[in-house]
Amino acid sequence: MEDSRKGKTLVQLFLSTLYISAFTFGGGFVIITFMKRKFVDELHWIDENEMLDLAALAQSSPGAIAVNAAILVGWRVAGFAGMVTAVVGTILPPMLILTVISFFYQAFAANPYVALLLKGMQAGVVAVILDVVWGLGGKVVKERSLFLCVVMAAAFVATAVFRVNVILIILAAAAVGMLRALWLRRRVAS
């Protein structure tokens, strides 16, 4: 009895994550909105405040936000089995779609019309990325913190001019942030 109910939950979890993942364009933040609609409003598996905390956790952990959110929702709903189910449901649609595309890519890209279409779209995607950078960078500047601006400028020079390894830059930024947090705490304490 207990087993069949858990089985049913897992099936529902799998189908929900599969569906959400297959039809969500536009990255992690969008998928969290869909998950909230499904798991909070529709299925009532998770309450709203908890979902907000899970979203914050998913965004602040390493890896893709969609996968992180699936891990958290899966654990919450059905433990380890739930986590595996939700993760598989989430990564299956992009894997299948990209598999099909990779098989056709060579033939696709060799076609002169498709190549021109792709080439034009590349200009568009760069604009999309730099538009996001502009928005995010603007938010950092608006915080009016010299420290954050220096971190941003230093990281940019390190990557764009000196081609420092990306992982080193991330580790350095995390270390600097940690030292600053410790220093601020000591200053408050004394």
């Binding site: 950078v133 400028a153 990281a155 991330i170």
Partner: peptide
């Protein structure tokens, strides 16, 4: 706390890749 200083670095890295 750690994330706060990571964010501007990540923005810079994305800018580098975008360029």
């Amino acid at each position: 706390g750690i994330l706060q200083s990571l964010r501007p670095a990540v923005v810079a890295l994305i800018a580098g890749a975008g360029i």
